[in-house]
């Protein structure tokens, strides 16, 4: 059965100016996947995510999201894709001048016709979904780093996105919070069918949540492996991937 494709990277070259991080990458993310982008530090995972989310332009190639070529499509279509995309940034990226509820209501105000009261309720619901019930009127400076991430997730989920991107969701979290966030990601994926793209190098997360992945390599500036992380561990296509997935070779 061939699945529908959510994201397709075509001949993608990522970098800054003449500094190329990744050459001619091709890969696909199916709808409903939890897709992991992994690789060593500095290999360009975050940069890849920035290309997928449209924050920087690829040096070459293009990205097709739900059938729309983001390099060629007119602004209003790109806008539609944006509305259906949620992003959780490393530090949450909440707007510090607004309360958590206002943060979540911001995309709603922008892109929906709900009444203010409904928006408040929705914000309350989203906060409850990520375990922050009752924190509506707190400012980002008044909550902890892990809570900021969860609030950021609540904001990313505000418009019921089709695709949610995560940049290192477990960075800076204690093992339990990070586990909870993983559970939340899986839950999200299962109950809403959301396609999820996660940048991480946390092995436990990779195996716990990922059902598809790519492995980026800085040396060869290419994708060294593409597939289910468990399969990759069973049949590692090469030394680097094996080492990465086994913490440098330990059994």
């Amino acid at each position: 059965m061939s699945k529908e494709i959510a994201i397709e990277a075509k001949n993608l070259t990522v970098g800054y100016g003449d500094y190329v991080l990744l050459k001619n990458a091709d890969y696909q993310v199916n709808k409903g996947d939890i897709f992991i982008i992994m690789g060593g530090s500095g290999c360009g995972k975050s940069s890849m995510l920035r290309v997928l989310t449209g924050l920087i332009q690829p040096l070459k190639g293009t990205v097709i999201i739900n059938g729309t070529d983001i390099m060629k499509a007119p602004e209003n279509e790109v806008q539609k894709i944006r509305e259906k995309t949620g992003i959780l940034y490393q530090g949450g990226a909440l707007f510090s001048s607004m309360t958590l509820a206002e943060n979540i209501m911001l995309p709603l105000q922008q892109y929906s016709d709900y009444s203010p009261a409904t928006m408040r309720e929705l914000a309350h619901l989203k906060l409850a979904l990520v375990g922050l019930k009752g924190f509506d009127d707190f400012y980002p400076s008044e909550i902890s780093g892990g809570m900021k991430k969860r609030a950021g997730l609540a904001r990313a989920l505000a418009l019921d996105p089709d695709i949610v991107y995560f940049d290192e969701p477990s960075a800076g979290l204690d093992p339990i919070s990070s586990r909870n966030l993983d559970d939340l990601i899986v839950e999200l994926n299962r109950s809403l069918g959301t396609t999820i793209v996660v940048v991480t190098h946390e092995l436990s997360s990779i195996f716990a949540i990922g059902n598809n992945s790519i492995f980026l390599d800085a040396q060869s500036k290419s994708i060294l492996a593409h597939g289910n992380p468990h399969e990759l561990l069973k049949n590692p296509p090469n030394e680097e991937v094996y080492k990465f997935l086994t913490r440098g070779g330990e059994k």
């Binding site: 989310t53 449209g54 944006r82 530090g91």
Partner: peptide, 16 residues
């Protein structure tokens, strides 16, 4: 500081 905290990125990707 908003730039450092990725808030500007968030604005951009939210299309604001």
């Amino acid at each position: 500081t908003m730039q450092v905290n990725e808030e500007l990125d968030a604005l951009q990707t939210m299309g604001l």
